[in-house]
Structure formats: C-alpha cells, structure tokens
Amino acid sequence: MKLYIKNMVCIRCKMLVKEELTKLGLPFGMVELGEAEVLSTISAEQHSQLKSALLKWGLELMDDKKSILIQKVKNVIIELVHYTDEPLTINFSEFLSQKLNYDYTYLANLFSEVQGITIEKFIIAHKIERVKELLVYNELNLTQIAYLLHYSSVAHLSTQFKKVTGLTPSHFRQLKEKRRSMLDDV
C-alpha cells in the first residue's frame, strides 16, 4: 500500500517516516520524498496513529488525489533543484509530464489553482534557495553555481536572484561574511 505524505522534502523526513513506521510495527519497502510503501495492510487505528505521529513532525498523510498530485509535482521540482546535478536533456515541462504521466497544461493549471503560484515561480523560489545555500557554503563561484542550476548565464542568475531577494548574489555573500566576522568578535 502506498502512502502519500505532504511536506516530506528532505533526507531527514525520510528517516522520520521510517522511524514512525518501525515504531508502529509496519513493515515498509521504499520510502522516497513524498511517499512510502507499506508492505502490509494498515488498520484504521494504525493509520490514525501514523497520521498523528507524522503530524508532530510537520508531515501529513494525504488522501485527496489532487493534493497527492500537487505534492508529486513539488517533489519532482525539489529533487531536481536540490538533489540532482545532471542537466536536463529536455525542457522541464516535458520532463514533468513524462515523470508524472500527465499533460503539463493540466499540471500547471491544477498547481496554480491549488497553490496560488505558477510552477515556474515555485521552481524559481527553490532555485534561489539553492543559490543562497551554495553562496553560504562558499565552495563554488557564481559561474559554477549558474552552470550547476542550469541558468543560461551568470547575468540571468543574478537578475533572478535580485528580483527575488532584493540583493545581488555578491552582496548576499558579503552580508554572510560580515555576519561571520561579527560573531567572531563575540
């Protein structure tokens, strides 16, 4: 039986779900972002207990088909932006359609209707968060970050970053360095 879980977006979330399933004595197979496969039937009481346990961690079992599909769209985007370094060989709309077996127009309209933002804006928000993370780590320069996140140029990344954050990437990095030096003075 497949369970669909809202807000499950990181490796730590996967560990929490595995832990809660184990506590309830529910054998499981695959546990991925947004979903888990339980290898036995779940009683109503176990379902309720799992739902409560996950809710404590900010995770939510989903039953509604539209909510499940929206969560799948989010998980594909998060996986692509945060955990995949491979460049796409096809455009994103095609990739999403193939991955979820739905027409992109349907997915885009449903996503916008339910989330109140477009898929594109959701992708941009996650890309900018990833850029911030990479700037803070200070291991890659802006050209490398632009390449890693599939921007057409550093200028495109910088423009988008400034539009979303109000800061240039270099100013953002300087603020981080300034804050670190202030903490060193303490």
Rank of each mutant, 00 (worst) to 15 (best):
E94K: 12
V186M: 10
I145G: 00
P27S: 12
Y106H: 15
T159K: 11
F172Q: 00
F122Y: 15
K14D: 09
K2L: 14
N101D: 11
L54H: 02
E133N: 10
D185L: 14
Q174K: 10
F95W: 12
Q160M: 14
Y106G: 09
I42W: 01
L3A: 01
L33T: 00
E86W: 03
L61H: 03
K176Y: 14
L183I: 15
K163S: 04
V114M: 13
V136I: 14
T84S: 09
L167A: 04
F172E: 03
H47M: 15
Y151P: 00
D184R: 11
E86S: 13
N138A: 15
S158W: 00
A36Q: 04
Y106P: 13
R180F: 14
F92Q: 06
S67T: 03
R173M: 04
S52W: 01
L142K: 02
Y151H: 08
I42T: 06
H47E: 10
L107V: 13
T118M: 09
K176Q: 08
Q49I: 03
R173K: 13
E35D: 00
Y137C: 07
D63H: 10
H82D: 09
K178A: 10
S93K: 11
E45I: 12
K2P: 12
G116Y: 13
A108Y: 05
Q144K: 11
R173V: 01
I78S: 00
K72N: 11
M30L: 14
S112L: 11
E129Q: 14
E37C: 08
K65N: 02
A44L: 11
S40W: 03
K6L: 15
A155W: 08
K56S: 07
N138C: 06
E32G: 04
Q174P: 01
L39E: 12
Q115A: 14
K56G: 01
Q71W: 01
S48W: 07
I42Y: 05
T143I: 07
I5L: 05
K162P: 00
F111M: 05
L149N: 03
G116P: 14
S152M: 05
L61G: 01
D64E: 09
M62I: 14
A44S: 11
G58E: 03
L175H: 12
I77S: 01
A44G: 02
I90N: 06
K121C: 07
L157Y: 10
E139M: 08
V114F: 12
G25H: 12
R12N: 15
L157T: 08
M8K: 13
K56L: 08
I77N: 06
H171C: 02
H156D: 10
Y137W: 06
Y4V: 03
L26N: 02
M30E: 10
T105C: 07
S67F: 04
L24G: 03
L149Y: 03
D63I: 11
L59Y: 02
L134W: 03
D184L: 11
K66D: 13
F95I: 07
